[in-house]
Design a protein around this nucleic acid. Structure first.
Length: 918
RNA sequence: GCUCCGGUGGUGGAAUGGUAGACACGAAGGACUUAAAAUCCUUUGGCCAUUUUCGGCUGUGCGGGUUCAAGUCCCGCCCGGAGUACCA
């Protein structure tokens, strides 16, 4: 019987669905394992062949773990709120809910064809009210909590109020927007509005006036990770800075824990590094510089506060720089400089964020006419204003040390300011930024190494009371409002004077109302403002809201009294393996960790980190094919002959090209203008196409649909081929050439197992089998699926040669291959191998490697002289190195190859190699 | 600019410091077939031998180094990709 993949795959996909083969429940008798894929945003374009790559890898791992005896949770769902559906709605008038539903249906059909072991009973959709109820709930919890920096966890806002009532801000340890100081008496005297404003400064979900990334093209605010190069990630529209009142999440309160938590995670170093950089911890000191002409202490005192990580360089400070937005500028600017400063401020205001980013090398600035006084030596230091200092980081002011900071150096050079080195070095061509060397001209620090000087200086600053040690993070609070329709509504209304009022938890979810028009209102308010009688917040939550806790919901997806029950959470705990793209490094993967830690603080989840191990699958690029048209004609010349003509390169649909050879008839039928195409062929009569690696996109005609592969080769071939393509983490072009090799493997496997009998297995066959078990198991554990597939091929080549029919060999082989090619394995398991229908191969015990077959009794050693292989000899493995040495010395070949030179040394690595040094 | 990751045949890619190029594609030749498909066999890094294919040289971006032995480790370059962007 032939390998009829179509029939086999149809049959088993249907039976798995009917039998609920992949349904999982809590089972205390077995250890759990949670394998999660990043759920997709269901776009209108459907899946291309690159999308399932990670899903296939995780599915193989899930099936492997299941066969190993784990109770595996492997769910799937949809990240269904988002901008594209809404943009589409604006263009076509189709409601996002309708297109989203259609897209999900299409996704599901495509996914189902690939034979995944998802438990679809646990499907979640972020746009489902039963789901977003818990997104809104979490928001309300964040609103109701603040972060206690002493206890290092979130606490109810009521505790904060109690503290204020008792002691004001005295002895307070709380993460906040700005430092506030008031007494208990003052608190008692505050109005409701004033108290609400004070509390807002501490809530973990809070409102604030903040500079936001405003995207006019999308009509909404975007988070930092949704903006790249000054353009929106979705749509590529320009983004500008604008001051707006927004909801935010106080992610910064968790900065240190987000950073520390990385250490214990089995994530790739590069991913951790991206998160570390994004959090951007820097340890330094804030220091106060007196300003000439202003009091340094007492009533009306003016001090310039700066942040620096290089306090040791304070004797090299030759000027100070303020950000153009710095509040002190107006007060300290000397009358003579006022005009110039104002002109500069006006000019920088005009320059957009994009322009500032575009020419970071341009040096600009203006002198204020004011001077700061170096608290260590009393030297007067001119204060400048420049846009290379950012208002949003540190204190918006720096002490400039041009000798040891490249930006300060460039500034000093441009404005001809002095450059004073305090470490022995040459600063004529550039600054010396390295944190090493011995200090000079630095008073009490002179002679110290930089590494000693930094802590010494911190101590001195604190001793003199002119500043203190301080840790700064680059991480910003996450802006949580979007001026859009297709997202979770905020369950918040406002009193007449603007105090937020939460919808009681019992009344959640607050349903997203229907609208007809998805565009902003004429006065620029979000679409929800169009809804009559909508008494709630009109912005909606961002995309990351719904994806921040979905992994918890899968544990208990139908629970309508809690996000996840304690029982379910105690059993499933957190995600053991998370597979997805690295593009979420600074978005979803930060927000989820924050969200989880918050819920952990409140006792709703039992693990501090959501994703224990994380694998980033690479992106699959397109491999485009080209034909070469002779300019101005309808004649096409083959690749190797194209240089003889004046040609034009045209993308051709990769689906009508096989192994770079064009299907001429298919080409003529492809598009009407090629109906009468003529071809200049290679001498062997073929038309060869050129190729290039590009992004997979419709316009390049290089999109390969997984359905097409499944129809022509089967899901098992697709699964194995995607794995065979290369290391999972690596980005690589899709190339359908080569798929025949994997398909051939499955056909041979079919033919071999079909003839299974109860014949005995030879030692050689068992050896091959057990080596393969070992190799494949190790490879799966290491996520090296490409080499695992190779191991299968090597194994089959050998078994095929020996025409094995032994059940003892073939049955374990089928169980071993089942995670990769579940359909064929299932069919063989029941058909040729005769297992009853009730025993799915999914639960076949994973084959155990018998170590006895792995050991060798003898080994063919290559014998080398001075590193070059000269001959091979077989030695007994039980021989000791010295016995081997003796044997070699006695060998007549040895004499021949040494040319009479004496043997100095014989190096024997058991099982590997022998090298003779002459 | 900084950080990280890479650079191996015509192609995708294998190689705990130990016979580089596994496995697969493609290509060439052959068997079977009326023919095609399918299947199977042989060859396939380069150069040079070939008076018996079971031999020689060379070879993992470039230049050095460590080692009996380097694709692998160290130093310095070159090239490509990703992240980040005035973060003090």
């Amino acid at each position: 019987m032939e390998y009829d993949f179509k029939e086999i795959e149809r049959k088993w996909q249907q039976r798995w669905a009917e039998a609920g083969t992949y349904h999982v429940e809590i089972d205390a008798s077995r250890p759990k394992y949670y394998v999660l894929d990043m759920f997709p945003y269901p776009s209108g374009a459907g899946l291309h062949v690159g999308h399932p790559l990670g899903y296939i890898a995780s599915d193989i791992y899930s099936r492997y773990k299941r066969q190993k005896g784990f109770n595996v949770l492997h769910p799937m769902g949809y990240d269904a709120f988002g901008l594209p559906a809404e943009q589409y709605a604006i263009q076509t008038g189709q409601h996002p809910a309708v297109t989203t539903e259609q897209n999900i249906k299409r996704y599901r059909e495509q996914l189902d064809k690939i034979g995944f072991s998802f438990d679809w009973d646990r499907e979640v959709r972020t746009c489902d009210p039963g789901y977003y109820r818990w997104t809104q709930w979490a928001f309300e919890q964040m609103y109701g909590h603040y972060y206690d920096t002493a206890a290092d966890r979130a606490k109810p806002i009521a505790e904060l109020e109690a503290h204020f009532a008792q002691r004001g801000t005295e002895g307070l340890h709380a993460a906040c927007g700005k430092e506030l100081h008031f007494t208990a008496a003052e608190w008692a005297a505050y109005s409701d509005k004033e108290r609400a404003d004070v509390l807002m400064n501490y809530r973990l979900a809070f409102q604030a006036d903040t500079m936001v990334n405003w995207c006019e093209g999308l009509g909404t605010v975007l988070a930092n990770d949704e903006v790249k190069d000054g353009l929106s990630v979705r749509g590529g529209f320009p983004v500008e800075q604008k001051r707006m009142r927004q909801w935010l999440l106080r992610v910064t309160a968790y900065a240190e824990r987000l950073l520390q938590g990385l250490d214990g995670l089995a994530w790739s170093e590069s991913l951790k590094e991206i998160q570390r950089n994004w959090i951007g911890k820097s340890t330094g000191a804030t220091m106060f510089f007196p300003i000439k002409g202003f009091a340094a202490a007492g009533e009306g005192a003016k001090l310039l506060e700066i942040f620096t990580t290089r306090a040791d360089t304070v004797f090299g400070v030759t000027f100070m720089v303020l950000a153009p937005e710095h509040p002190l500028i107006g007060e300290i600017t000397a009358p003579a400089q006022r005009e110039a400063v104002e002109a500069y401020l006006a000019e920088t205001k005009k320059r957009s964020e994009r322009e500032r980013m575009a020419d970071t090398k341009r040096v600009s600035g203006v002198f204020t006419g004011a001077y700061a006084i170096n608290p260590f030596n009393g030297v007067e230091i001119p204060i400048w204003v420049s846009d290379y200092v950012l208002a949003g980081y540190g204190t918006g002011a720096i002490m400039a040390v041009p000798a040891h900071d490249s930006r300060d150096w460039a500034f000093a050079r441009h404005f001809d300011l002095p450059i004073v080195p305090i470490i022995e070095c040459d600063v004529s061509e550039g600054s010396y930024d390295a944190k090493e060397g011995r200090l000079i001209n630095s008073d009490f620090l002179t002679g110290l190494d930089v590494k000693e000087a930094i802590p010494a200086m911190f101590a001195e600053i604190e001793r003199r009371g002119i500043g203190h040690k301080k840790v700064n993070y680059r991480l910003r609070d996450a802006i949580f409002s979007r001026q859009r329709y297709w997202g979770e509504p905020f369950p918040v209304s406002y009193t007449a004077d603007g105090i937020p009022v939460l919808l009681p938890e019992s009344e959640l979810p607050l349903l997203l109302p229907e609208v007809q028009d998805f565009t902003p209102t004429a006065d620029g308010r979000p679409p929800l403002a169009r809804v009559d009688g909508w008494g709630y917040e009109t912005s909606t939550m961002p995309g990351f809201a719904g994806s921040s806790a979905y992994y918890l919901r899968y544990m208990d997806p139908k629970n309508d009294t809690a996000l996840v029950s304690k029982t379910a959470n105690d059993y499933w705990r957190n995600v053991d393996l998370y597979v997805g793209g690295i593009e979420h490094a600074t978005g979803h993967l930060i927000y989820s960790r924050f969200w989880n830690k918050f819920l952990y603080d409140l006792g709703y989840v039992c693990e501090d980190e959501p994703f224990q191990k994380l694998v980033n699958q690479g992106m699959i690029q397109g491999r485009s094919n080209f034909v070469y048209r002779i300019k101005g004609t309808n004649r096409f010349v083959s690749f190797n002959l194209k240089d003889q003509y004046d040609t034009q390169e045209i993308h051709v649909d990769v689906n009508i090209v096989k192994n770079d050879v064009l299907d001429l008839d298919a080409f003529r039928a492809w598009r009407p203008e090629f109906k009468d195409a003529e071809f200049i062929l290679e001498p062997d009569g073929r038309y060869v196409c050129g190729w290039a690696v590009e992004k997979m996109s419709k316009s390049m005609y290089n999109v390969v649909n997984p359905d097409f592969i499944v129809d022509n080769y089967g899901a098992d071939t697709l699964r194995m081929y995607e794995m065979f393509l290369g290391p999972i983490e690596q980005s690589k072009p899709w190339d359908t050439n080569g798929i025949d090799g994997v398909h051939k493997f499955l056909k041979r496997l079919w033919r071999l197992v079909e003839n299974v009998g109860d014949t005995p297995a030879t030692d050689a066959e068992l050896k091959v089998l057990h080596k393969t078990i070992k190799k494949v198991s190790d490879d799966i554990e290491n996520f090296s699926f490409n080499t695992a597939v190779s191991a299968f091929m090597i194994c089959l080549n050998e078994l095929y040669d020996s025409k094995t029919t032994a059940r003892l060999v073939l049955e374990p082989l089928v169980a071993l291959v089942a995670p990769f090619a579940p359909h064929i394995a299932e069919e063989l398991w029941h058909g040729a191998l005769g297992h009853p229908e009730t025993e799915s191969v999914c639960d076949a015990p994973y084959p155990v490697c018998d170590e006895r077959y792995l050991t060798e009794s003898s080994f063919e050693y290559p014998v080398s002289f001075n590193g070059k292989t000269r001959f091979k000899r077989t030695f007994d493995l039980s021989m000791t190195p010295s016995q081997i040495t003796e044997a070699i010395a006695a060998d007549e070949q040895t004499a021949k190859y040494t040319d009479g030179r004496a043997i100095k040394k014989v190096i024997v690595v058991p099982g590997k190699i022998i090298n003779i040094v002459c």
